[in-house]
Write a protein that binds this DNA or RNA. Structure first.
Lengths: 142, 142
DNA sequence: CTTTAATTCTACTAAATTTATAGGATTTAA
DNA sequence: TTAAATCCTATAAATTTAGTAGAATTAAAG
């Protein structure tokens, strides 16, 4: 399950993908029904990950730094939830061997979790901000 | 990511699938490196879900109630982690509409999460205790 | 130069969840 | 009657989650 924070991050990014130009925290918060103070910290985190940029002062706000087609749910998941895999030992980006595992290579649990991660990752990569805004399905293209 | 508890549950079930007849908590705990007291509560939970049965008293222990081919990671995940979907609104078994969602049917976020859930669920259903014990791959059969 | 509206920064907190542990009650075989 | 096992209730430390509070900083506009 996603945390509220990750869900809010996705909704904020979808808002930014739909509204070109600068968007104010206040407007995003009201439209997407996100607590404003919480959203502030989320936007700063998105900024630190170079997904958005900000303009300070009056008439300031946030905008996307990348094209909506270049931001996928896999990216957002990794930023706010960490590994897509169900165990660190099955992760691509957050790999850690289990402290108690005898042989990582032959571990059946790991093999199973890699199978799951491959499928989940593909599904998450299928979904870009652009596709979410377009409103079409998410079947994989050929 | 899985909780330790869910990971322990899987390891305990794999142990039971590998060892027919009664298995003692102590033996499972030592072999699978699970804190014994924690494992006790996990086995009781598995029992309440009718995945295992127990025999009390001296020479007691636990055994599987179902065939290893009939227990998948999807089942175990739902027992210990809840929804396989990333949001309740995209779940089959734990469906709840988002409290703030205007129209569940047209929600793009939900559509995306259903796409992810379909893929993850299939992957988790692919993996049965039998397959984990057999030690082969988990590619989908035709 | 002052006001206003926005982002940025630091700190704090309440609640829930996770990961167990403690200790005894109960059951059954030998 | 003893020993070995499951079963039950309660507790607790650590971590994570989901925020909130309040002030500092920045910049546009008059």
């Amino acid at each position: 399950m996603l945390t509220q924070k990750a869900k809010y991050a996705i909704k904020a990014l979808v808002y930014l993908a739909q509204n070109e130009g600068l968007a104010k925290t206040k407007d995003i918060a009201e439209t997407a029904r996100i607590p404003k103070k919480f959203l502030e910290s989320i936007l700063l985190e998105l900024k630190s990950h170079h997904l958005v940029e900000s303009v300070q002062g009056a008439h300031g706000g946030y905008r996307l730094l990348k094209k909506p087609a270049d931001i996928s749910l896999a990216d957002i998941h990794r930023m706010f939830e960490g590994p897509i895999a169900l165990l660190y030992c099955a992760s691509l980006n957050f790999y850690k061997p289990c402290p108690d595992c005898e042989d990582v290579e032959s571990c059946q649990l790991r093999r199973a979790m890699i199978h799951v991660r491959v499928q989940t990752l593909r599904a998450l990569q299928d979904i870009t901000l652009q596709r979410m805004v377009e409103g079409e399905g998410f079947a994989r293209q050929e």
